[in-house]
Simulated assay, not measured.
Amino acid sequence: METMNSTVPVTFVRNSLAVAASSALFLVACSTDATPTAFPEISSENDLVLPLDAFDLNPLQRSIVDRADFKMADECLRGFGLRMPSSKNTTPVNYPKNADYAGWLEPRHLQKYGYQGPPGMRDEAWAAQDGRRAFTIPADIDAAYTGLAAKVVNKKRVPDGGCANEAEHVLNAGAPSPTGSGPAKPREHKRMLGLMDAAADAAFKDPRWAQADARWSDCMREKGYSYSAPYAAENDRRWQANLDAVTQRHPVTQLEIRTATADEQCRKETRFFGARLAIYTDAQNTVIATNKDKVLRLQVLMKTRYANARKILGLPPAA
């Protein structure tokens, strides 16, 4: 066998919906049959649909909200004689939102980059879930933008929470708090991430998770590789050899590429992607049912932010 079993722990980083596909996935997820044929075949990123997506914005809508947020924060900073960084990227995030939940490897371009994926991929994966890309706040605008460290900047009082909060107030105008306690507060739309995390915790405890790992492991063993689960293959210590301390990237070996290629093939052969999506579908449906009012208020908040963003940018109302 080419590889040894690895048990390195890892924290896996975390669209308009097709109703028919969602319904089919829901029915599959409710099945008690955990054999591969019980799960759908996932053939493209368009199949990576989960229930909470229906209450969230799609990548283009998120991009419009991010642009409006940037614009309002910039207008606030102008009052202090400052500007937002021109490098801020507000284009739509193309990384599939649910790829990591499904263990979908295609965005990594395994043949070229191995498991680590192309440069910047991890940041894009997080942005796909969070709805916006992280950016470095320049030192000269930090106090006025965040509302921290200084209460007065350039002889002008900084609003509570800084210009970041000022932008949030405009985007949230007219929307309820997901908690039902009054108007939406800054960044309360991020409570969607909390619901996704709660579902992820439940999914990991689902017995079908371990069963999917075991089927994958058996397939890999037949191909000459010994790993207990996909995370063990992805985090084999050998892939970390010669890690660059600055970029946190490593040279990709042919062994890693062969392993990753076999890994992806086994995920397809065992319907690993379909199993993971079925597990997450059940978990998210439970979270939605348990938090029905909160989820519905979150949906209103998301739609309101999008409608307000279009006004801020001078765009016509959405059809």
Rank of each mutant, 00 (worst) to 15 (best):
L195H: 07
L195A: 03
D197I: 10
A199Q: 03
A200F: 12
A200S: 15
A200L: 13
A202H: 08
A203H: 01
A203C: 02
A203R: 00
F204G: 00
F204W: 13
F204I: 14
D206C: 02
D206R: 03
P207C: 02
R208K: 05
D213C: 12
D213G: 09
A214V: 00
A214L: 07
R215V: 00
R215P: 00
M220R: 03
R221Y: 10
R221W: 04
R221F: 08
Y227W: 06
Y227S: 03
S228C: 06
A229E: 14
P230N: 05
A233H: 06
E234D: 10
N235H: 15
D236G: 02
D236I: 01
R237D: 12
R238H: 02
W239K: 09
Q240E: 11
L243N: 09
A245Y: 04
T247L: 11
R249T: 15
R249M: 13
R249W: 08
H250F: 13
H250G: 02
V252L: 12
T253Q: 08
Q254N: 15
Q254P: 00
Q254K: 15
E256D: 08
E256F: 02
I257H: 08
I257Q: 13
R258Q: 11
T259Q: 13
T259D: 13
A260Y: 12
A260P: 13
A260V: 12
T261I: 11
A262G: 05
D263F: 02
D263M: 03
D263Y: 05
D263S: 01
D263Q: 03
E264G: 01
E264P: 00
Q265G: 11
C266M: 08
K268F: 12
K268I: 15
K268L: 11
E269I: 01
F272K: 04
F272P: 03
F273G: 03
F273T: 04
A275L: 11
A275W: 10
R276V: 05
R276L: 14
L277V: 12
A278Y: 13
A278H: 12
A278S: 15
I279G: 08
T281K: 05
T281E: 05
